[in-house]
Design a protein around this nucleic acid. Structure first.
Length: 697
DNA sequence: GAGTTTGAAACT
DNA sequence: CAGTTTCAAACTC
């Protein structure tokens, strides 16, 4: 086995490592172990990637380069962590022995940690890092690290190693394999007041109060997916639901780490429909979608020091590579065999990005990316004139012409065209939908990008302070119109209506000026429209409510689809006449101060959501919608961030009301209402209101 | 593609 | 909370 530099790596310092690691733990954790604890790859698991390269990837430090006892800070800056280095290691034989992954576990002193924090740039914007902390086991006397006789399969260890080296995925995620990991991080946090307050203000209380001791903590945060904490049982359950939901290709990157975590912690727990360790994030519906994610991830990378890029770039590259190479973009299972060993592999040649995907040549991180052969950079690319504020050009205009082709896709960029709002107002469709603007957008002076995520966060907070439901789905389903039996029989379509109602004066609610019509729902008593002629249902009930079947609405839907078909827009409304209501809208809506939660276990279709919710939160009701002919459309109407919100099983769903008064426990009430909750960053409960029957908003 | 219309969002 | 302004999408030509 060769080390990164080709020098043989030996494993002969386990005891020393153990002592060092234990010392390290003692310096960090305020909780002293009752008995000496064994730490699984303690130091090597600390992947504080955004910190100076000291923490970037200690695994890459081979012993011959870092003499025992040598300062990490002194050594790592000279240790260039490049893609090639990573690949050298990762592309070793999959069946390599544990010893082959034995690396130096340099001692990290407390002063060095403090120094690191002092140097850290994470005080700006949102925290963006991915840390996997190790298991701290009191049950074993030996490390479970590679090279130690622990009975752990090499493959598993390799996977662990890979996980730790997948430093960033652009979602700010912390994965702790044990409560001790959370404790460690908390200890670190307590020692570093400079640590990003945005992050710890939200996570710290949860770590301390709710999650530590449960066994597993997963946290994630970014402007739109702020954080999620799940315990292991929830992870398993969610994964089961998601994985068995059928052929849903667009499992996105956040789930990747769920899958990895599953692999790590529950090696005997099969993930239905997937190979062990399959990185489900590799599955994208389209290259465009993957590219969109890539853009966001890459932009997020800009927040970090360029050290982190070395971790993220290969990861992203692999994602895109996978998407591009897959003969069947809906199924990338053929990748699974390689995945465990090839996380870092990229293939620039096969990288097939949509034409509009060009990285901004001025982006600081691009130089690194290009050095790694990851991305295709065109310095004079006219297609990226919009990245930094920027002017419309022919390319953007071309994109504008294609606006709508995928804008209706769930979670997809809406391809806005904002000129003055900086995409930080609800005028902006992207912002309102809870997605970052990406290259297809033709907006100007856009700030709705990951690189401005701190601004995005603050703006969203401001808007939500004015209107707690500002980012809630515009269309809500009338859950009161059905009970479990009705849903079960699927004979009664779900009714839906606009949450606020329209205020149309001239359009007669028959054009897309009308939000009700645009959403494919009839006007309701909430509407203040004049001369309503909404073909999906008039305010006066001419067509009845949208929970009755009429030919008129079906016809309207057909007409609507025809219109959009001409524009290359995916049909939004149902073609079937079996149901009048186009959208079985989400039964839930967010009124939380912080409604965004993670998509760690993100069902990307309503089908998945239904299964998940039906099982976890809405027993007997939601899941029965999964076969609804309009579920896909409905799903599209649910903002991504709110769909994500449905993925926070253990804590994310609580009873709330718009006026922030707790109204009921997190379950289904007698009136059939479901209530969701979110928790404020400050820890106080924020209210989410169930939707009993078109509540007055 | 430019200009107009429209109504939501934002502002006062 | 009502009136006004701003804004961007939808629409028309």
């Amino acid at each position: 086995m060769q080390s990164v530099s080709g020098t043989p790596v030996k494993n002969n310092n386990c005891n020393n490592e153990e002592a060092l690691l234990f010392d390290f733990i003692q310096t960090l954790s305020p909780i002293k172990p009752v008995k000496p604890i064994c730490v699984t790859q303690m130091v090597t698991s600390l992947a504080f990637d955004s910190l100076p390269s000291v923490f970037t990837s200690p695994q890459l430090i081979s012993k011959h380069r870092i003499p025992t006892g040598h300062s990490v800070l002194d050594s790592l800056p000279q240790q260039e962590i490049t893609y090639e280095n990573l690949r050298t290691v990762v592309h070793s034989d999959e069946s390599m022995s544990c010893e082959e992954h034995q690396f130096e576990a340099p001692r990290i002193t407390e002063s060095e940690i403090d120094r690191l924090y002092g140097q850290s740039s994470i005080g700006t914007a949102a925290v963006s890092r991915h840390i996997i902390l190790p298991t701290v086991s009191e049950d074993h006397e030996q490390f479970e690290s590679p090279g130690v006789k622990s009975g752990v399969e090499p493959k598993k260890e390799l996977f662990r190693w890979e996980c730790r080296n997948s430093l960033l995925d652009g979602n700010d995620m912390f994965v702790f394999n044990s409560p001790d990991g959370a404790e460690i991080l908390m200890s670190l946090a307590s020692r570093s007041p400079d640590w990003n307050q945005t992050f710890f203000n939200s996570l710290t209380p949860r770590f301390l109060q709710n999650e530590v001791g449960k066994g597993r903590v997963v946290a994630q945060m970014n402007p739109y997916q702020q954080h999620t904490l799940l315990d292991s049982s929830s992870l398993i359950e969610c994964m089961d639901n998601v994985s068995t939901a059928g052929d849903h290709p667009s499992v996105r990157y956040p789930e990747d780490y769920v899958a990895m975590s599953m692999e790590q912690d529950f090696p005997n727990k099969p993930i239905p429909g997937h190979h062990h360790g399959l990185r489900r994030c590799l599955e994208y519906e389209t290259a465009e979608r993957a590219a969109s994610d890539f853009m966001q991830l890459a932009a997020g990378c800009h927040l970090r020091d360029d050290t982190s890029l070395r971790g993220i770039a290969p990861e992203i590259g692999f994602h895109l590579d996978a998407a591009a190479m897959s003969p069947n973009k809906h199924k990338c299972e053929h990748l699974s065999a390689e995945t465990r060993c090839s996380t870092m592999r990229i293939s620039p040649v096969s990288l097939e990005l949509p034409e509009y995907v060009h990285m901004p040549p001025h982006a600081p991180f691009m130089s690194d990316v290009s050095k790694e052969g990851l991305l295709l950079v065109e310095d004079d690319s006219p297609a990226y004139g919009n990245f930094n504020g920027e002017e419309l050009n022919e390319s953007s205009l071309q994109r504008k012409r294609h606006k709508g082709e995928n804008s209706g896709e769930k979670g997809a960029c809406k391809r806005c065209n904002c000129k003055k709002s900086k995409c930080l107002k609800l005028y902006c469709e992207c912002f309102a939908a809870g997605v970052f603007c990406t290259d297809p957008c033709t907006c100007q002076q856009c700030l709705n990008k990951p690189i401005h995520c701190n601004i995005v966060i603050e703006t969203r907070k401001q808007i939500e302070s004015r209107n707690p439901i500002a980012f809630a789905p515009k269309v809500i389903r009338d859950s009161s119109s059905q009970d479990d039996n009705e849903v079960e029989s699927s004979k009664t379509p779900t009714s839906a209506r606009h949450k606020k109602g329209c205020n149309c004066k001239r359009s007669g609610c028959s054009k897309k000026y009308c939000e009700c019509y645009q959403s494919g729902v009839g006007c309701s008593f909430n509407c203040r429209c004049e001369g309503c002629k909404n073909s999906f249902g008039r305010k006066d009930g001419s067509f009845g409510s949208s929970d009755t079947v009429t030919d008129s609405t079906s016809q309207a839907a057909e007409e609507h689809n025809k219109k959009h078909a001409k524009k290359g827009v995916h049909p939004t409304y149902p073609r079937t006449s079996s149901c009048l209501s186009p959208f079985p809208q989400a039964t839930f809506m967010s009124i939380s101060k912080r409604p965004r939660s993670s998509s760690l276990v993100m069902p990307t279709t309503l089908d998945q959501t239904n299964r998940l919710l039906g099982k976890l939160y809405f027993p007997g009701s939601w899941s029965k919608l999964e076969n609804h002919p309009f579920t896909k459309s409905a799903e599209d109407e649910v903002p991504r961030i709110l769909r994500n919100c449905t993925n926070t099983p253990n804590y994310g769903l609580k009873t709330s009301s718009p006026n922030s008064k707790r109204v009921s426990p997190p379950n289904k009430g007698k009136d059939g209402c479901f209530v969701l909750t979110a928790e404020a960053r400050s820890g106080r409960r924020m209210m989410l209101k169930s939707i009993p029957s078109f509540p007055s908003l």
